[in-house]
């Protein structure tokens, strides 16, 4: 009896090890497959030249520039609003129905699928505000998408700052505003940057919402009101229109390398932040 039980037990444990192993192997399969086929095409000229013949030849210089503009715009809009909201929610509001409602509204935003953000961006920024398919409309849509991430991480970081910092500052006669700007925020900067980097990762990989708001022009953008194509949109068009498998792999590799860099940056910063406050 006992023996069959133990055999059964070992079998189940082996099965669980296998599931974990399978999950890991999916990750290595995807990352390895893309990098193996793509890294060979990454050379200086790929990064420095613009796409030619619809992207069959040339590189991704203009695409990188558009991606940079889109994510920068998103951060410029989302960071002050997000951090401001986080400070207000954590420092100025007491536990109340109002706070619960505000938190609920911002958190609901996090669960909305990106295609709905795309529809909203198209109806509001592109059509209603008459921005057209443009970097500005795309950047604003991305800003809306990353706002919940920024609010949440900033709020958690502010909560993690030891109370004694705040009390010491107030006891020295500093006002609440001075305490927030000169004590709380500086202590929370690494945590806020971590959240920002995570938000950046989401913005860089976004495709569906940008298709409906920033358009897909592969040209070097000349203004914020010009259409621009992000890396992810470029990969989508290259792959689904059967333009070039090589270029698709190369672009996908760039995206994966960016994700790896962003993850390690965020992890490193988070560790430093926790060490500093410990």
């Amino acid at each position: 009896m006992r023996r069959t039980l133990l055999v059964k037990e070992s079998l189940i444990k082996i099965f669980i090890w296998i599931t974990a192993f399978l999950v890991l192997s999916f990750l290595f399969l995807i990352v390895g497959y893309v990098l193996k086929n793509g890294l060979a095409h990454l050379n200086p000229s790929f990064f420095l030249s613009n796409p030619k013949r619809l992207g069959k030849e040339g590189g991704i210089a203009s695409i990188i520039l558009s991606t940079f503009y889109l994510t920068t715009l998103a951060i410029i809009f989302a960071l002050p609003i997000g951090v401001g909201s986080a400070i207000f929610l954590s420092e100025y509001m007491k536990e109340s129905v109002g706070k619960k409602l505000l938190t609920f509204l911002t958190e609901t935003l996090a669960g909305i699928p990106s295609i709905i953000f795309g529809l909203f961006g198209f109806a509001f920024f592109v059509t209603w505000l008459k921005l057209g398919f443009s970097l500005l409309a795309g950047g604003l849509t991305l800003a809306v998408m990353i706002l919940p991430t920024i609010i949440k991480t900033a709020e958690e970081t502010l909560k993690a700052v030891p109370k004694s910092y705040k009390e010491a500052s107030l006891a020295l006669g500093a006002t609440k505003k001075q305490t927030i700007l000169r004590v709380l925020l500086p202590a929370a900067v690494p945590g806020i940057i971590t959240g920002l980097i995570l938000a950046l990762g989401r913005a860089i990989g976004e495709t569906a919402a940008l298709l409906l708001t920033a358009g897909s022009s592969a040209k070097t953008p000349t203004s914020f009101l010009a259409s621009g194509r992000s890396l992810a949109v470029h990969l989508y068009i290259l792959a689904t229109e059967g333009i070039s498998l090589e270029m698709s792999f190369a672009t996908a590799s760039v995206l994966i390398v960016l994700v790896l860099i962003i993850n390690s940056l965020a992890n490193g910063l988070q560790k430093r932040f926790q060490k500093k406050l410990a």
Binding site: P80, I81, G82, G84, S85, I87, F88, L89, Y92, L101, L102, L105, T106, T108, L109, I112, I116, F117, L119, F120, A123, F124, W128, V144, L147, I151, T175, K176, K177
Partner: peptide, 30 residues
């Protein structure tokens, strides 16, 4: 200065919270 700082923070919060309502409103009306 304290009051205007608080007001500014309140405005950012109001903006963040109203976005979901804007999204629902625009998608529903279209």
């Amino acid at each position: 200065r304290e009051k205007s700082f608080t007001g500014l923070l309140f405005l950012t919060t109001l903006l963040s919270a109203s976005i979901i309502i804007l999204i629902a409103g625009f998608v529903f009306s279209e």
